[in-house]
């Protein structure tokens, strides 16, 4: 952590499903292929949702962590 070149940070804290994955979709479309975005969410469904979103869209999950009700994901645009 800390050494990744993150192009865009998306704060989806406090937003409920489906807004975190909508915000992620919006964010990933604004960076180039191969670039990274970071999404922070608090929706309790986020971990399963971002796993499904990553597998379905082909945007790879580079990092994932949970701390005190906050979920952080780093995703690489396909």
């Amino acid at each position: 952590m800390g050494n990744l070149d993150i192009k865009l940070k998306v704060d989806a804290s406090g937003l409920s499903c489906p807004l975190p994955i909508l915000k992620a979709t919006q964010g990933i479309k604004s960076v180039a292929s191969g670039e990274l975005i970071e999404v922070v969410a608090t929706d309790p469904g986020s971990v399963k949702d971002f796993d499904a979103w990553s597998r379905s869209t082909g945007n790879a999950m580079v990092e994932q962590e949970s701390t005190g009700g906050k979920f952080r994901f780093v995703l690489r645009r396909k």
Binding site: P18, I21, A24
Partner: peptide, 11 residues
């Protein structure tokens, strides 16, 4: 709207 948006986000 949630079901539609979720499916759209999955492409």
């Amino acid at each position: 709207a949630t079901l539609a948006a979720g499916a759209a986000a999955l492409g």
